[in-house]
Simulated assay, not measured.
Amino acid sequence: MPVIVRPEDYDVWLDPKRDMEEVIALMRPYDGDNFAVRAVAPPMSRYDTLQPSMF
């Protein structure tokens, strides 16, 4: 599962000098209300069929 970092947490996430506990605290369930789900054509769901014209 990917980690989705909120924009207000980018500085903490990207700072290599931050304490690891502070960074790990950012790894929490994401609010699903902010997701958008879109159907895609079958070729878009296969990595081996992707073409630049699809984007």
Rank of each mutant, 00 (worst) to 15 (best):
G32A: 04
I24D: 06
D15F: 05
M1F: 12
L26T: 07
A39R: 10
Y10Q: 10
T49E: 08
A41V: 14
R6W: 08
L14R: 13
M20S: 08
D48C: 09
K17W: 04
P43C: 02
P52Q: 08
P43T: 02
M44R: 05
M20P: 04
M1T: 14
R46Y: 07
R38G: 03
R38M: 05
T49I: 08
A39H: 07
K17E: 13
P52M: 06
L14G: 06
Y10N: 11
P52L: 10
Y47R: 15
G32E: 13
E8A: 14
S45H: 03
A25Q: 06
S53H: 15
D48K: 03
D15T: 10
Y47K: 15
Y10K: 08
D48F: 09
M44G: 07
P52Y: 06
I4C: 01
L26Y: 01
P42M: 04
M1G: 10
V3D: 08
D48Y: 08
R28D: 03
S53G: 14
D33Q: 07
E8C: 07
E22P: 01
P29H: 01
V23S: 01
W13I: 08
Y10W: 13
P7T: 13
A36G: 13
F55V: 14
P29W: 00
P43M: 02
A41L: 12
D19V: 12
P7F: 09
V23F: 00
N34Q: 08
R6I: 06
R38N: 05
I24F: 04
V3H: 09
F55Y: 09
V40N: 00
E22I: 12
A41R: 10
S45Y: 01
W13A: 13
P29T: 10
D31F: 05
M27V: 15
L50H: 02
V37C: 11
D19M: 12
M1R: 10
F35M: 05
W13Q: 00
V5Y: 00
L26A: 04
P52D: 01
R38T: 13
P29L: 12
N34E: 02
S53Y: 15
L50F: 12
E8W: 11
Y47A: 15
W13Y: 14
M54F: 15
V12W: 01
A25M: 03
M44V: 06
P52A: 07
M54S: 11
M44I: 03
Y30A: 12
S53A: 10
P16Y: 03
G32L: 07
V3A: 11
I4Q: 07
T49R: 11
D48Q: 08
T49N: 01
T49C: 04
R46H: 14
D33F: 03
V40M: 08
V23C: 05
M27A: 13
D11T: 14
L14I: 13
A39V: 15
Y30P: 00
I4K: 02
I4T: 06
E22G: 02
S53K: 15
D15K: 06
M1H: 06
M54I: 03
A39W: 05
V3F: 12
R18K: 15
A36K: 07
G32P: 01
A41W: 11
I24W: 10
P7N: 13
V5S: 00
E22D: 13
